[in-house]
Design a binder for these strands. Structure first.
Length: 496
RNA sequence: GGUCGGAUGGCCGAGUGGCUAGGCAGAGGUCUGCAAAACCUCGUACAGCGGUUCGAAUCCGCUUCCGACCUCCA
C-alpha cells in the first residue's frame, strides 16, 4: 500500500503503523449489537465509526473480511451469570417467541444502518447459529485446564490463567487490584474466584433459549460467541478487533483469555475502541434513560430536540470528532454540523457538473493549494482515521471548487491533471470513504415543478415585478425550498 | 474507594515543545433589484498553580472540575 496508515492500538496504548498479517487481506471483527430492543444512537455511532474504518481500508486497496456478530442469545440481564437471558426475558414479557424478538430487532438494526449509509459487513454471524462451535470452545478450554464445571455450568478460572498469562493485558489492570475492587455480587457461590466468568450456564426449566451440551441443558456465556465466531471466520489470528470502549475492560479481556486458553494466542494484532456518545456529559445508555432512538432524531420527536436532522447530518456530526473522543450531543453542535455538511454537500454537487476552463498559465498558488488539500485528505485518515482532519482538507477543496464555480478563480489556471485529481479525491473521500451522500433530488415530480416555478419567477424578474418574484421566493422558503440566483442568470434550489 | 481518560476562543472540534487547523455563530466587504449562496477580511483560545526549557497550550508535578470502567451496556 502506498499510504502509511497508523492506528491507535489499545493493547499497546500507542499509535502503530498498520501492517496486516497477510496483505492485501485484512481480517476485522467488530462486536455487534444485542438484538433485544431498538438500537440507540450511541450504538449507531460505534458501527458508523467502524464503517468508516472498513471503507478506508477498502479504499486503500485492502481486501477486508469484516465480521460483525449479532448477539441473539447468551447475553445476561443484570447481575453476573445469575440473571435471565436478555432476549428471553423480553420474549416472555411480550409473549413472543425469542426468535420473533431477534428477527424484529435484527431487521430494525439493518434498516437503521442502511439509513446511515453504513455498508453491511462481509459476514454477520449469530450466536444461536454457532452453539456447536461454542461448545467445542468450552471443551477446549476445559481440556487445557483453565475451566471447571459446577452443577451443569462451566466457569473460566481467571486466577489460574493469570499464573501463566496476563489477564489484564488489555485493560492495564493488575489482578490483585481487580480482585480487591470488584464489587461483591450475588450468585458467586459456584465460582472458585471472584473474577471467574461463565462459559456455559445451566438453564432453569423456565428458560426459553437452551441447548443440550456435555454438561446438560444450558446456554453459552456472553463472551464466548465472539471468540468462537472470530476463530471460525477469521482464524486464530487476525488483524483488527473492535468494539465500543465499554466492552474493553470486561468483554474483550475475557475474550482474549478464552482465545489464549484454547489456542494459545491473542486473536488480534490491533484492538480498536470507539468512544461513547454522551448527552449533557453523560454516557448515552438505555439504563440511564438518556438515549435517543435514530427515528426520534430524524423526526425531531425527542424532547431534547428543537428539530429533526437527516441521517446524513447525523453521520456527518459523528465524523466531526475522531472516533476515540467522546461526542456530546447538543442542538447547537448538530446545527453547526448541519451547516457544514450542506456546504460540503453543495460543493460535491457543483463539482459534478464543473468543467475545467481552457488552460492558461498555471497559477502556482492555486495549484499547490489543491495538491496539498488532496494529500491532506489522506494524511487525516492515515492518522488513526482522523475524520475531522480529512473534513478540513475537503473543505479546502470545496473552497477552490466554489471559487471556480463562482468565477472568482479561473479553473484553467491549474493543470488538467490537477483538476482531475481534485475531482477524484473529493468524490473518493466524500462518497466512498466518509460514506456521505448528497440529499438532492426529491424524486417524483418535484424537479419539474420547481423548474416551472423558477421559470415563472424569472419572467417576473425580467419584467422587474419584484413584488411577485420575492413573493414566490418567500413562499417557497416557508415550505422549505431555498432559491439561489446564480451569476449566470439562472436559479438553483435546495431543500432544507 | 481503585484504575484509566478528559479540561482548547460564544458553540463544536483537530493539533502540537517555537511556524497562530477547520466548521458554526458574529463583524466588515465584494457580488446581487433585494436576498441567499459563494468569495475576501477580522476575532489570537488552550482549567488553575508551580517546575523543566532560550521558548510550553503542548513535557513534569500538584490542585480543581468532569467523565468512563470496576455490574449488562456500542
Amino acid at each position: 500500500m502506498e499510504q502509511k496508515l497508523f492506528v491507535y492500538n489499545t493493547l499497546t496504548r500507542k499509535k502503530e503503523e498498520f501492517i496486516p498479517l497477510d496483505a492485501p487481506h485484512v481480517g476485522m471483527y467488530v462486536c455487534g449489537p444485542t438484538v433485544y430492543s431498538d438500537v440507540h444512537l450511541g450504538n449507531c455511532r460505534t458501527f458508523i465509526s467502524f464503517d468508516l474504518i472498513f471503507r478506508y481500508l477498502t479504499h486503500l486497496g485492502y481486501k477486508v473480511r469484516y465480521v460483525r456478530n449479532i448477539t441473539d442469545a447468551g447475553h445476561l440481564e443484570g447481575d453476573a451469570d445469575e440473571g435471565e437471558d436478555k432476549v428471553s426475558k423480553k420474549a416472555r414479557l411480550s409473549a413472543l417467541e425469542p426468535m420473533e424478538i431477534v428477527q424484529k430487532y435484527t431487521v430494525d438494526f439493518h434498516e437503521v444502518m442502511k439509513t446511515f449509509n453504513a455498508l453491511p459487513p462481509s459476514i454477520e454471524p449469530t450466536a444461536t447459529g454457532h452453539i456447536i462451535e461454542q461448545i467445542e470452545l468450552v471443551k477446549a478450554i476445559l481440556d487445557k485446564g483453565y475451566a471447571y464445571e459446577v452443577d451443569g455450568s462451566v466457569y473460566f478460572d481467571v486466577e489460574k490463567y493469570n499464573q501463566t498469562q496476563d489477564y489484564g493485558i488489555l485493560n492495564g489492570r493488575k489482578l490483585e487490584d481487580m480482585l480487591n475492587n470488584t464489587r461483591t455480587l450475588g450468585g458467586q457461590d459456584q465460582k472458585h474466584g471472584k473474577l471467574d466468568f461463565a462459559l456455559w450456564i445451566k438453564a432453569k426449566p423456565e428458560h426459553l433459549m437452551k441447548w443440550p451440551s456435555p454438561w446438560g441443558v444450558g446456554f453459552p456465556g456472553w463472551h464466548l460467541e465472539c471468540s468462537a465466531m472470530s476463530n471460525k471466520y477469521l482464524g486464530h489470528q487476525f488483524d483488527i478487533h473492535g468494539g465500543g470502549m465499554d466492552l474493553m475492560p470486561t468483554h474483550h479481556t475475557n475474550e482474549i483469555a478464552q482465545n489464549v486458553a484454547s489456542c494459545g494466542n491473542n486473536p488480534a494484532t490491533y484492538w480498536l475502541h470507539t468512544n461513547m456518545l454522551t448527552t449533557n456529559g453523560q454516557k448515552m445508555s438505555k439504563s440511564l434513560g438518556n438515549s435517543f432512538l435514530p427515528n426520534e432524531l430524524f423526526n425531531g420527536t425527542h424532547p431534547l430536540l428543537k428539530k429533526g436532522y437527516s441521517p446524513m447530518v447525523v453521520r456527518f456530526f459523528f465524523l466531526q470528532a475522531s472516533y476515540r473522543s467522546t461526542i456530546d450531543f447538543s442542538n447547537e453542535a448538530i446545527d453547526a454540523a448541519e451547516s457544514f455538511y450542506k456546504r460540503l454537500s453543495e460543493a460535491a454537487k457543483k463539482l459534478a457538473s464543473l468543467q475545467q476552463n481552457a488552460l492558461v498559465a498555471v497559477d502556482d498558488e492555486i495549484e499547490s493549494a489543491i495538491i496539498a488539500a488532496c494529500e491532506d485528505c489522506y494524511n487525516g485518515m492515515n492518522d488513526n482515521f482522523n475524520s475531522p482532519k480529512t473534513l478540513d482538507a475537503l473543505n479546502n477543496i470545496a473552497k477552490q471548487v466554489n471559487s471556480f464555480a463562482g468565477g472568482t478563480r479561473n479553473s484553467g489556471a491549474i493543470k488538467a491533471e490537477t483538476f482531475g485529481r481534485m475531482k477524484k479525491t473529493y468524490n473518493d473521500f466524500f462518497f466512498d470513504v466518509l460514506g456521505l451522500k448528497t440529499e438532492d433530488s426529491e424524486g417524483g415530480d418535484t424537479d419539474e415543478l420547481m423548474s416551472l416555478i423558477i421559470t415563472l419567477r424569472n419572467q417576473a424578474k425580467v419584467n422587474k415585478d419584484y413584488a411577485t418574484s420575492d413573493k414566490i421566493r418567500e413562499g417557497l422558503k416557508q415550505i422549505g425550498f431555498q432559491l439561489n440566483d446564480n451569476k449566470q442568470g439562472g436559479t438553483d434550489w435546495t431543500k432544507n
